[in-house]
Simulated assay, not measured.
Amino acid sequence: MDKKLAYLNVVLASCLWGIIGIFVSNLYELGLSSIQIVSIRVLSTALILILYVVFRNQKSLKINLSHSWYFVGTGIVSFSLFNWCLFNTIQMTSVSIATILLYTAPAFVTIISRVVFKELLTTKKFLSLLLTFIGCSLVIGIFQNSNTAISFNGLIMGLGSGFFYALYSIFGKIALVKYDSLTVTLYTFIFASIVVTPLSELWEIAHLFKHVEIWLNIIGIGFLSTVIAFTLYTKALNTIEASRASIIATIEPVVASIVGFIVFQEELNFWQYIGIIMVITAIILVRDSKIDV
C-alpha cells in the first residue's frame, strides 16, 4: 500500500472512532450499561466479519492455532482490558481525565515499538508526542478545571487504559506478519466477544432488541465505528510504523469534539481550537517520513 493511502486510512479510521459517541449516547439513552455497549460492539463486529468472510473470503478464517496468542493479545489483552480500564477510570475520576490518560497510548506505542520493532525515537516523534499530549489536554478542557483531583487508583487505571490501547498497534503489527488485516480484525473481535459477552448479561435487555432504533445504532457502532475503522487501521499497519499510526490516530478526540459541537451543541472554546491545531500539527509532523532527525 502507498504510504499516503496508509496515512489516509489511519485518519479515516480515527474519524470513524471519533463519531462513536453518537451511537454510544443513543444506546445509553435506550437503557444499556457500559459493559453491554462494549459487548454489543465486539459481538456485532465479530458477527458482521464472520458473515463477510464466509460468503466472500473464506480463506481469512484459516489460522494456525499456535498463533492464537496474537488474537488473545489484540482482542482480550488490548481491546477488552482497555475498555475495562477506561470505564473504571471514568467512574473513579472524570471523562476528561480518563480521556487524556487514554491518549498516553502513543507514548506507550513509541516506547514499546523502539524495543520490539527497533523503530527510531526521532526528534520529530518526540515533538509530535508532546504536541499531541498537550493538544488532547486542551481539546478535552482538562486545564480549565482546577478541581480535577485524581486518586492513585484512578491514575493507575487511566494509564492502564492507555497501555492496553497501545498494545493493539503492537500485537496487530506482529500478527500482520502472518495474516492479512481482515483476519487480524476478525479474530480480534471473536476473542474479545468470547470474554466480554458472558460478563455483559445482554439477555436481561433482550426486550429492547425489538426496536428499530437500537439496531440502527448497533450498525453504527459495530459496522462503521468498528468493522471499517479497525480494518482501515490494521491495514495501514502493514505500511507505516506502529508509533506513527498511533500518533496520527489521536485525531480521534478532535473529531469527537467537533461531533459534540455539531450534534450535541457542545461549545468549543479558544483553548480547544488551539488544541485541535496542535494535534493536526503533530499529525503533519509525524507524517513527513522523508527526513527524520
Rank of each mutant, 00 (worst) to 15 (best):
V42K: 00
Q144V: 08
L32M: 12
T99S: 13
L285R: 10
A282I: 08
R56Y: 10
L12M: 14
G222K: 10
T281S: 15
D292T: 13
Y70I: 08
N83M: 05
Q58F: 04
T110V: 13
I20P: 06
L176V: 08
S151N: 03
K210S: 15
L285F: 15
L131V: 01
L129S: 04
Y52R: 00
T104E: 03
S257E: 07
T234C: 02
Y28W: 09
L81N: 13
S68W: 11
W17M: 09
G158N: 09
T188F: 12
G162S: 07
G220N: 13
I112G: 00
V10M: 06
M157K: 09
G172I: 02
F189M: 03
I277C: 05
K4T: 11
I76Q: 08
G18A: 07
L155G: 02
S193R: 02
N88I: 14
R56K: 15
K4N: 13
S128A: 15
M92T: 13
F71K: 09
I218V: 11
C85M: 14
F79C: 04
D292P: 11
T89Y: 13
A242S: 08
S225E: 05
A192W: 00
S39P: 05
S39A: 14
I22A: 09
F230Y: 06
I150H: 04
V53Q: 01
H67I: 10
C136R: 10
V177G: 05
N88E: 15
D2H: 06
G75M: 01
S243N: 06
I22R: 02
A192I: 05
F152P: 07
V196T: 07
L61D: 09
G135R: 00
M92Y: 12
I194W: 01
L30E: 11
A105I: 03
F191A: 09
I284Q: 07
L101T: 05
K178M: 11
T104K: 01
T183H: 10
I40Q: 09
I214D: 07
P106W: 04
F230G: 00
S243I: 14
F189S: 00
V263K: 08
L159M: 05
L12E: 12
I280V: 11
F261P: 03
L5M: 09
T188N: 11
M278K: 03
K178S: 08
Y233E: 09
F230W: 09
G260D: 10
A175R: 05
I248D: 11
I218E: 04
A236F: 12
F261S: 11
Q91N: 15
I134L: 10
I190V: 10
K178H: 14
H211I: 15
I219C: 08
V212D: 13
L268I: 06
L86F: 12
R244A: 08
I277H: 02
F209P: 04
Y52A: 00
V38P: 05
Y165M: 02
A105Q: 06
I174Q: 12
K3N: 11
G73L: 00
L30T: 13
A229E: 07
N269L: 07
K125H: 05
I277K: 01
S44Q: 00
T185H: 06
I240M: 06
E267W: 14
F23S: 03
V139G: 04
T45L: 03
